[in-house]
Nucleic acid binder design. Sequence first.
DNA 1: TGATATTGCTTTCAATATGCAAGCAATATT
DNA 2: AATATTGCTTGCATATTGAAAGCAATATCA
Lengths: 146, 146
Amino acid sequence: MQPDFRCDCPFTSALDVLGDKWMLVIIKQMLVEGKETFKDFTESSEAIATNILSSKLKMLEALGMVIKTKRPDNKKTNLYLLTPKGLALTPLLVELALWSDAHLRAIHPGMVNGADMDFLRRDKQAFARALEDKYREKLAAIPHLP
Amino acid sequence: MQPDFRCDCPFTSALDVLGDKWMLVIIKQMLVEGKETFKDFTESSEAIATNILSSKLKMLEALGMVIKTKRPDNKKTNLYLLTPKGLALTPLLVELALWSDAHLRAIHPGMVNGADMDFLRRDKQAFARALEDKYREKLAAIPHLP
DNA sequence: TGATATTGCTTTCAATATGCAAGCAATATT
DNA sequence: AATATTGCTTGCATATTGAAAGCAATATCA
């Protein structure tokens, strides 16, 4: 289940894991949009197919970026949560959004542009910290994790 | 030739452009390894196929991230060079490498780990600036660009 | 306590992206 | 003039992604 790495370059190795259409989108949905169940992901605006979602979640789990667990009062609904290894992608996601903001609006004018983007442009480190802190608080509110 | 965007999210929109196996690898080869000709790219350690390389270079050009030009003394060899829009991906690449360094070594022990990585770990902003400055100097040494 | 709805998938098959190898025209080198 | 190099393109094979249906387990409702 490990990816096979093309070479020994750290840049390329990250892309061997993350360089596809979905891995970082799923991470973003967890971190930014608070998605945590299989259903949550299928309902997001990116409209991922369930078979792809299933396989990517398995990869993320195998890589230790996500853990799969449940709430004690519900035996059906699985929770997918970011581990520190997944949460550590926050600065990368922030750079993605900054680049989009600066260089993609010309060809994608409808891209969202609200108060969050202002905050991001004003102080990207604070923005990243806010995202991480919010996620950690969320985790703290689920006090039965492995 | 524009990508079609899945939705209006800035994170996802960046991945609509960059989220595949090769786009960022090619940018990295230009920025970090100084590759500039078609031949250069085919000889890199990632071993991209020539048809894929051709199509990705066309995309990068269409998106305005790369320009295709020649030296005045050589009518055959094309030069592919980063535009500001491509060069603006430096901080993103830096975050990719940092994440690899911190979280991928466990499953990819052979990943390179020399003086450059030390510099990167010590001061990522300085590292990014150094890369950008070096690339701009290189461009300045090709004084016949469009 | 059934009956129905929801969740979390898997399976099948179609479409698209990636990969390999060969080949070829234009230019550069000898 | 002959050969090598560069920058590709063109098939064709394989892998990844996608759409749709289906299904078992649990949860919710009457």
